[in-house]
Design a binder for these strands. Sequence first.
DNA 1: ATTAAATGTAAACTTTATTTTACATTTTAT
DNA 2: ATAAAATGTAAAATAAAGTTTACATTTAAT
Lengths: 66, 66
Amino acid sequence: MKNTIRIQRAVKNITQAQLAEAIGVSRQTINTIESGKYVPSTVLALKMAKVFEKSVEELFELEEGE
Amino acid sequence: MKNTIRIQRAVKNITQAQLAEAIGVSRQTINTIESGKYVPSTVLALKMAKVFEKSVEELFELEEGE
DNA sequence: ATTAAATGTAAACTTTATTTTACATTTTAT
DNA sequence: ATAAAATGTAAAATAAAGTTTACATTTAAT
């Protein structure tokens, strides 16, 4: 699954640590999600979407055959 | 987190087993998600949204303080 | 060039999602 | 009323998410 979190963070100009605090997870959780190492829960996806004022689909996209 | 999966299934008139097969999980996974026992991954949420032709936000909603 | 802030990474650990199997209960069709 | 299909539930197991601590590397500011 692809994600555009790094881009959205750049748009809002916030750090991984700030995003982590905003949604109540550790900074490493943001880092590993952002770098595609694992897939977040739907709760985290919804929280991120809220922070960035975007839809979940704008933040996360399924890849071919996924 | 609340979800409207049962309703969407009714709209599309498909069973838990059919939904499970459509997105490649076990029927019990659908059942437990539907009854709110746990939160699915974002991949599953996106797949369900695709099946139901709805946004993730229309299927899953954060609750107060979540 | 140095320092501070931000990011990347990794290992060990805890928690939660998901599977499998199996059976009980409810709903739907005949 | 009976049978079949659908749903609820539960326990044990495995996979994956998320935390914590700690340190290395990169980027930004002075």
